[in-house]
Amino acid sequence: MNAIKNLFKSLFLLELIKGLRVTGRYLFDRKITVQYPDEKTPQSFRFRGRHAQRRYPNGEERCIACKLCEATCPAAAITIEVEQRDDGSRQTSRYEIDLTKCIFCGYCEESCPVDAIVETRVFEYCGENSNDLLMTKSDLLAFGDELEQQLNVDKLLDSPYR
């Protein structure tokens, strides 16, 4: 009985028609393809792109070298060295994120007690060799300065959920 049923099915290409029905439906549906890079998809304020280090409005770096982000990073992409600055405060003497290791989980941002390290909306970056993707402290701070306005807005949008 089953064998006859299968023979019937394959003889009339029923499965094929079933599949083509889906194709057909999408053929006439509203299109969702985005013409990147001319068009872009909307981003959440929690988008997790390339990292930046932020400063306080007075220009002081936020990061206090607590090393929580380093400890929490599952890819061990962050390397921090600490030093005592002349005014006695605790600061990083080295803060590096290796973007070739980073998996963009956002744990560093999550763990940071002072909102210093953030993952920005920027995901378009490249490097010609892997060293270009090793973000040093000055890279990160400069990037933060560039995007500070946006970052501020994003943090504000996120704050009701914290």
């Binding site: 380093e70 400890a71 600490v82 030093e83 005592q84 605790r90």
Partner: peptide, 9 residues
């Protein structure tokens, strides 16, 4: 030792 490392490292 001040600030040189965290216990967990």
């Amino acid at each position: 030792f001040r600030f040189s490392a965290r216990a967990w490292e």
